[in-house]
């Protein structure tokens, strides 16, 4: 009798687990987002990245995809990832995606935004994300680089399209500093003037009938000219390339690539 109860319980548990797993697969139509063909990540890193990617994918209705390859024959990673995404989009019936692809053999990395992500993650934002992940890529810390790609892109996509998400005017610390300085200035001014303000000006006692310039000289003396080069905007390590385009399947995208 007791054994029977235990068996029933076990069966129920198994049933619940299946229902649970089934529930997850139903709500997220996409079941794989990390395509680590170059074997740069270990099992647990892939699992963790899948979780993070799934979470943020749901938030934006945009899938975060990762593609790694190791192929010296692939000269143009932009074409390769375009072909990959054409196939992936047809297979999964999903047009909105952020795709980070890298070729470890040629040391190229390319980040692209498809569908709605083409505007929410435009070329400028792609460059900002690449700036942040490039040091980790160069160190070979791919798991962290991919993780940061998801979180940073996801954060940037919350901003209104076209706005620079790293603009100093949108930083909280600047708002706080301005607020404190302003309050200090205003209250300081009030304190200083609490005992009455000096309201005489240089013109109060000025006699303009009898004040005048009697002699005036503005003699040119010499001239100096200094030259300097227009400073070039430095890009953070490795040459940049890309800047969006259209895939072989006719899907347009925003994007940017770097060597690392």
């Amino acid at each position: 009798m007791r054994e029977l109860q235990v068996k029933w319980l076990l069966a129920l548990c198994v049933l619940f687990i299946f229902i649970g797993v089934d529930g997850v697969t139903v709500s997220a139509a996409v079941d794989q987002r990390v395509y680590d063909n170059a074997n740069l990540l270990n099992e647990s890193e892939i699992a963790e990245l899948e979780v993070v990617a799934a979470e943020h994918s749901e938030k934006h209705g945009t899938d975060f995809l990762f593609l790694t390859i190791s192929d010296e024959e692939v000269f143009d990673i932009q074409d390769y990832m375009g072909d990959f995404f054409d196939a992936w989009a047809v297979e999964n019936g999903q047009e909105n995606a952020v795709l980070l692809s890298m070729n470890i053999a040629t040391r190229d990395v390319y980040l692209a935004g498809f569908g709605t992500a083409e505007t929410t993650l435009d070329n400028q934002r792609v460059d900002l994300v690449l700036d942040r992940i490039l040091p980790e890529m160069q160190r070979g810390d791919y798991a962290d680089a991919f993780h940061e790609t998801v979180t940073t892109s996801s954060r940037y996509m919350e901003f209104r399209p076209g706005v620079n998400p790293e603009s100093i005017f949108l930083k909280t610390w600047l708002h706080l500093a301005i607020a404190l300085l302003l309050a200090g200035g205003v209250v300081g001014f009030m304190l200083y003037n609490s005992g009455g303000r000096v309201t005489t000006t240089p013109t109060t006692y000025f006699d303009d009938n009898n004040t005048r310039v009697t002699s005036k000289l503005d003699q040119f003396r010499n001239k100096t000219i200094s030259r300097r080069k227009v400073p070039k905007k430095s890009s953070g390590g490795g040459g940049g390339f890309g800047g969006g385009g259209v895939t072989g399947g006719g899907r347009s995208f925003s994007g940017g690539g770097r060597k690392f």
């Binding site: 004040t211 005036k216 000289l217 003699q219 003396r221 010499n222 001239k223």
Partner: peptide, 9 residues
């Protein structure tokens, strides 16, 4: 560079 002079009442 300019040399500037002013005399005034």
């Amino acid at each position: 560079f300019y040399d500037v002079r002013r005399e005034m009442d």
